[in-house]
C-alpha cells in the first residue's frame, strides 16, 4: 500500500493526489452541510416573511429586508475577494486562517446565501393552497414547515443543493490561497504554475468526475422523492 502511495503519477505522489481529493471532499461536504443549514434558515425567513407569506404581519417586515439585503450583498462579492477580506473573522472563529478547516468559514459564508436563494425558489414552488389548507387545519408554523412546506418541495430542494454543491466545488478550488488544499489547488500550483500539463488534465478530469457524481446523485435522489407526483 505504502509503495503505491509513494509511487508517482504525472510527477506527484499518489498520496498527495488522494490527500487533495480528500481535502476537496472535506471542504465540499462540510461546507454543504453547514451551508445548507444556514441557507435553509435564511430561505425559510425569506419565504415566510415575504409579501403574502405565512408569517407576514406576525414578524417584523424589517427581518425580510435585512435577510434579503444580506443575501444580495454577499452574493455580489466574488469568492476570492470574500476569502481574503474576511480573514480576521476566520481567525476569530477558527483560531487560524490556514488550512482546509479555516477555508470552511469563507466557503460557508459564500455558499449559504447562494443556497438560500436556490432553496427560496424551491420553497416557493409549494402551492399557496397547500399552505392555506395547513393553516385551516390548525397547524402552527413549525408544523407547516415540517409537514407541508418541506415535504412538498424536498425533491426540488435536493436539485437546488446539487447546483449549490457544484458551485461549492468551484469555490473550493480557490481555497489554495489560504492553504486549504484540494484538487483545485493541485491544479493551480502543480499543474498550472509548474506547467505540468498532464497533471493539469488529470485534475480537471477528477473535477469533472466530481461534478458528474454530484449531479447524478442529486438527480437520482430528487427523482426518487418526486416519484409519485
Amino acid at each position: 500500500m505504502d509503495e503505491f502511495l509513494n509511487s508517482k503519477i504525472f510527477g506527484i505522489k499518489w498520496s498527495r493526489l488522494l490527500n487533495s481529493c480528500g481535502q476537496t471532499l472535506y471542504m465540499v461536504g462540510w461546507g454543504l452541510l453547514i451551508g445548507t443549514v444556514l441557507g435553509l434558515i435564511l430561505a425559510l425567513i425569506l419565504v415566510l416573511t415575504r409579501k403574502g407569506g405565512v408569517l407576514q404581519g406576525r414578524l417584523p417586515r424589517v427581518l425580510y429586508l435585512v435577510v434579503n439585503t444580506y443575501v444580495n450583498v454577499i452574493r455580489s462579492v466574488p469568492f476570492v475577494i470574500l476569502l481574503v477580506t474576511i480573514m480576521p473573522l476566520t481567525r476569530l472563529i477558527m483560531g487560524t486562517t490556514i488550512g482546509s478547516t479555516a477555508a470552511l468559514v469563507p466557503l460557508v459564508l459564500y455558499i449559504s446565501p447562494y443556497l438560500a436563494r436556490l432553496l427560496e425558489n424551491s420553497l416557493l414552488e409549494c402551492s399557496p393552497g397547500i399552505l392555506e389548507a395547513a393553516q385551516a387545519m390548525g397547524a402552527n408554523i413549525w408544523q407547516i414547515i415540517r409537514y407541508f412546506l418541506m415535504p412538498e418541495t424536498l425533491g426540488s430542494m435536493v436539485l437546488a443543493l446539487t447546483t449549490g454543491a457544484i458551485g461549492l466545488l468551484g469555490a473550493s478550488a480557490m481555497a489554495g490561497y489560504v492553504g486549504g488544499g484540494g484538487v483545485g489547488d493541485l491544479t493551480l500550483t502543480y499543474g498550472y504554475e509548474k506547467m505540468n500539463t498532464p497533471l493539469m488534465i488529470l485534475t480537471v478530469v477528477i473535477l469533472v468526475a466530481f461534478v458528474q457524481l454530484i449531479q447524478f446523485l442529486g438527480g437520482a435522489i430528487s427523482g426518487k422523492l418526486r416519484a409519485h407526483r
Binding site: 392555506e132 385551516a136 390548525g138 407541508f148 422523492l225 416519484a227 409519485h228
Partner: peptide, 18 residues
C-alpha cells in the same frame, strides 16, 4: 378552533406525492 372547522377546497390542496 380551526380543528373544529374542516375545510374543503376547489383545487383540493392535497399533497400529491403522498
Amino acid at each position: 378552533l380551526r380543528r373544529k372547522i374542516g375545510m374543503v377546497f376547489q383545487q383540493f390542496n392535497l399533497l400529491d406525492g403522498k
